[in-house]
Simulated scan of single mutants.
Amino acid sequence: MTQMPPLPQMILEPLVRAALTEDLGTYGDITTRTVIPAGTRYLARIVAREPGVASGMQLAGIAFRLIDPGLDWRVLHADGSRFQPGDTLAEIEGEAASILSAERVALNFAGRLAGIATQTADFVAQAAGTRARITCTRKTTPGLRLVEKQAVLHGGGFNHRFSLSDAILIKDNHIAAAGGIRPVLQAVKAGASHMMRVEIEVDRLDQLAQVLDEGGADVVLLDNMETAALHEAVAMASGRVVLEASGNMRLARVAEVAATGVDYISVGALTHSARTLDLGLDF
């Protein structure tokens, strides 16, 4: 799988700090403070209960270190690497109370993001041998978009826009409000920066023909088209624009969509419907 360079800790730390603040509440971990004698030390392991692709290990490490900088955190399965049931993903050694206080937040991040990476890898496998790249959308958990999109990269996928300011993406409602495909593309050609990429959504082949005739778009999003229509769209475009297939992209359908020759397949389910992987912390 894809191993990416780590994100800057100063960007990730506020996310982890907010999660720890939520979990510790107003008075901290009263259970651990009550029952664990001060000075008790342990070696703990984050262990996989099922197979998957690692992601979120960087955030898990930040969680432990924010609770106790003296904890020794060792990653054995880096973000982007595959693991099997029973594999140890990381080891944490030090004060038992500190480990227990950070445990849930660390596992929440690692399990959630590994779930996204693993699901992405499943979709990527279905497109193997074709030109199609699997990409995510902005259908992410509020506040966690950066790390969820990083998890998509760990699974071998690609990222679409991070925000509304990344590119011009003209959707069906923009077209309806502006009066049609030609008016929106003419507005883009008249007013958009030469540095800005432009994508426009169509759901019919006659709309694609209008886009190709008018010009002004770099990418065309083919929304909710049947497979036969996607084949026709690829032939019509003949490489003049990048083509992205989207809408109802179930895992079972991805292989046939990828075989049409589209350049990208965007899948909201990579982030909005990923299952959290079962990871545990064992003393």
Rank of each mutant, 00 (worst) to 15 (best):
M1S: 12
V53K: 04
G111V: 00
D206C: 05
G157E: 04
Q150T: 05
L100N: 01
L153R: 15
A117R: 03
L12I: 12
V152R: 00
G70A: 06
A228I: 10
I265Y: 00
D218E: 07
Q150R: 14
Q186W: 02
N159K: 10
G80T: 09
R65W: 03
R275T: 07
A259V: 07
L144S: 06
N173L: 12
V262M: 07
G280R: 12
G86D: 13
T141Q: 09
L89S: 03
V184M: 09
E201L: 11
T260H: 13
R275E: 12
I46G: 00
D29L: 05
D278H: 13
L107D: 00
G115S: 10
T276P: 01
R82H: 13
A274E: 01
E148T: 04
A233Y: 00
R82C: 14
N248P: 09
Q84A: 15
G247S: 07
S98H: 09
R133H: 15
G280I: 08
D172A: 15
Q207N: 07
F162E: 11
V241Y: 02
A229T: 08
V267G: 01
A60R: 00
V152G: 00
Q9I: 11
A258F: 02
G70Y: 07
I168A: 03
L15A: 08
D213P: 02
A229S: 12
E91W: 09
A235R: 15
R45L: 00
G61T: 11
A255C: 05
D29R: 06
R131T: 15
A192I: 02
D166G: 07
D278F: 03
A60P: 11
M225K: 00
A54S: 14
A60E: 00
K139I: 12
L251Q: 08
P69L: 03
